[in-house]
Amino acid sequence: MQANVISARNLSLTFQTNDGPVHALKDVNVDIGKGEFVSFIGPSGCGKTTFLRVAADLEQPTAGAITVNGMSPAEARKSRAYGYVFQAAGLYPWRTIGGNIRLPLEIMGYSKAEQAERVARTLELVDLAGFEKKYPWQLSGGMQQRASIARALAFDADILLMDEPFGALDEIVRDHLNEQLLKLWARTEKTIAFVTHSIPEAVYLSTKIVVMSPRPGRVTDLIESTLPRERPLEIRDSPEFIAIAHRVREGLRAGHEDV
């Protein structure tokens, strides 16, 4: 009933390097439906980040097709269809947290009043209300990453592309942020594409898991999660969770064997 938000058909991307061509993506077929939370997992070099960058129009595919909101990635980028969260928070040190979240709004030409309203709303969404006037260096790494998520949410794109956003954080902070991210997803009904190399993180968060393997970067398994949408942290000890994690691990191993 619902058209796919992101749809890739036989998507390939080959980088020409001095050591010969590198197949970052080869014949990748992925569909992401509206409101889904899709994780891309695999070892480094499997093309998971490249896939996200292609969807964001930061890389150009060499073959195949991809649509974002039914448009080409370039059109989607120009219509500001997605918010992109990078691995590092990348907040500007000369701007306050509020100023950082306001940055894309200024660029997109929102009115001053609208900017203030949206900054307040998104700060509240990531549980950072009251930190608007603080500078990035006054916040912990986890809080900075939350601010960067708020910045990606501020202009109300339907799609959130997240490239290992919690990769640099410790386990405890990461658990906490994962839980918060699920709540945020439930409240905002965004479509989220999430790159990670953590199996528990992928299983805990996702409605669908795309398992990838390198050389050439390709999809080795597509797992539809059977977990309910409501997920307390304890769900990670359930047999169902462990079964899915097991299947992800098998998929990763399969990708490694035929290299």
Partner: peptide
């Protein structure tokens, strides 16, 4: 500015 910061500007279509 890092490549990431420049990419980020691009994602906002700045």
């Amino acid at each position: 500015p890092s490549a990431m910061q420049l990419d980020q500007m691009k994602t906002w279509n700045a």
